[in-house]
């Protein structure tokens, strides 16, 4: 019985100057083949200038049920946004 190829997460930099973005996943026996497969599966229309692949089992994710305690604390801190402050028009652009 064959063993299934491991799963890899694929990240692609669409253009120079942008971050790599997660685009999907694929199976491949090793990292080198994962890059080659990612080229064929995710960049058939010139979508990328660089590819990262990461074994899926190496990704640690935040827990969905802890979304509240994890992200809510930042909601109340509206003073972190520039729009919190009123600057008089006379002061000009700031």
């Amino acid at each position: 019985m064959s063993s299934e190829w491991p799963l890899w997460e694929v990240f692609i930099r669409g253009q120079h100057g942008l971050n790599h973005r997660h685009v999907g996943s694929l199976h491949a026996p090793d990292a080198e083949m994962a890059i080659k497969n990612a080229r064929d599966v995710y960049t058939r229309r010139n979508e990328g200038v660089s590819i990262w692949v990461v074994p899926s089992n190496q990704i640690t994710a935040s827990v969905p049920s802890e979304k509240g305690p994890m992200f809510e604390p930042s909601k109340s801190k509206i003073y972190r946004h520039p729009t919190f402050y009123d600057i008089p028009d006379e002061v000009g652009h700031m």
Binding site: S2, S3, W5, P29, D30, M33
Partner: peptide, 12 residues
Amino acid sequence: RDGLVAHANKRA
């Protein structure tokens, strides 16, 4: 498929 797995294991 098996050959590529064997190769990957050997390299690792």
